[in-house]
Design a protein around this nucleic acid. Structure first.
Lengths: 209, 209
DNA sequence: GACTGTGAAGCCATTCACAGCT
DNA sequence: AGCTGTGAATGGCTTCACAGTC
């Protein structure tokens, strides 16, 4: 077990393995091999073993992995053995959809607050959370000990919102706006551009098909 | 100019460059260097040049690239010089958000139809499009010459929906459900798992910070 | 016999560095 | 002088293949 540099692709796959293991555990499966996981999620068995090997030895040679144990290990590795508090900035279609997305809650992400600059959206109720104005940002971050900010505002205000999140002490940001954001080096930034995926399909349809 | 195997990462970056070039064109910028594009989107200048080099020579040595020309070339490369017809299956929060997402329309993706199995959602109006029942799937695909299917249904029905899309002749699928889907080799499949991104942040917060 | 864990090999993407133009 | 286009070098991820274990 040697922790040095973990490929991001490995982390993404672990997240996928964990959901598959959860399903298996629910189905009552007790033991599973790397080959079966591989088939279940669409990668190679060597890949599964290599990914896990970054973090330790979780299996038994000749046998495989205990599903419950491995699930626990992977969740721990991903930091999902605890609650993360999340604030969403931007209560448009995407922000609202994310706020209501059951998948996040199920994995330990708690939507602490959702803010919007638009007066018209403030007060709207999304399940447990009510849309609030931007000026409560710092207060809510402190109050709920928010770790992660999700940005779903229009491109134009994305950097401004980012600066506010950083100033409030948020240490990780998931950015859905199609803009390059500047953050201090101690803040973890991740960009998701939904258009990119459709455009890769467009390219491939043209190019291959 | 040699077309062989284009890295998927290159295609994704081209999609990002194109949005930056669009912005520049709107700002009236006429010429730009690979270094400036690089800074604008957060990659290296050699990367920009290499990505473009897969498809031809679009710049002038000593000068740079003409913004309008390069934008046109990149859009053409991505297959975005034409309209693509899209069907969305699943009118939940995410499906609805995607159906209403302006970013898609702006890039030439036309939401032809949105379907759902839930009787309660059928008839709901999302902008121009009305939610329809699943049994019109094949009909709508034919009628609108649909090229791309977006799956935002619960995990349990994802494969069934996929099979219907494939049977109807859809050649590319964007899957938002966290499940491995089986498709024939001539169908292009792309998976997007929104939870993965949050979980990578969770991992990094734990591991680095 | 089956399956894990892992060094070594292979492969692919990114970066370097410079020749070639303007 | 400035910037592109590109072969060569580098770096990193994936696959191979097998020793180790049950």
């Amino acid at each position: 077990m040697k922790i040095y540099k973990i490929p991001e692709a490995t982390v993404m796959r672990l997240s996928i393995y964990s959901r598959y293991l959860y399903q298996l555990a629910g189905d009552g499966v007790e033991t599973i091999s790397s080959g079966e996981i591989a088939r279940g999620v669409g990668v190679s068995s060597a890949q599964v073993r290599k990914d896990l090997a970054y973090f330790g030895e979780f299996g038994t040679r000749g046998v495989g992995y205990n599903v419950d144990d491995l699930y626990g290990h992977v969740m721990k590795i991903l930091g999902l053995d605890k609650m993360w508090n999340v604030i969403i900035i931007g209560a448009g279609k995407l922000g609202s959809a994310l706020a209501l997305y059951k998948g996040f809650v199920k994995r330990g992400f708690n939507i602490s607050a959702i803010l919007d600059a638009d007066q018209g959206k403030i007060g709207t109720e999304l399940e447990k959370v009510v849309v609030e104005p931007m000026d409560v940002l710092a207060e809510r971050v402190k109050e709920h000990n928010v770790n992660i900010g999700i940005i779903t505002v229009p491109t134009i205000s994305a950097q401004e919102v980012t600066d506010k999140l950083v100033a409030a002490g948020v240490k990780a940001i998931l950015n859905f706006s199609p803009r390059v954001l500047n953050v201090p080096s101690d803040v973890i930034l991740r960009n998701v551009d939904l258009s990119v995926h459709l455009e890769v399909l467009s390219f491939k349809l043209d190019y291959q098909g």
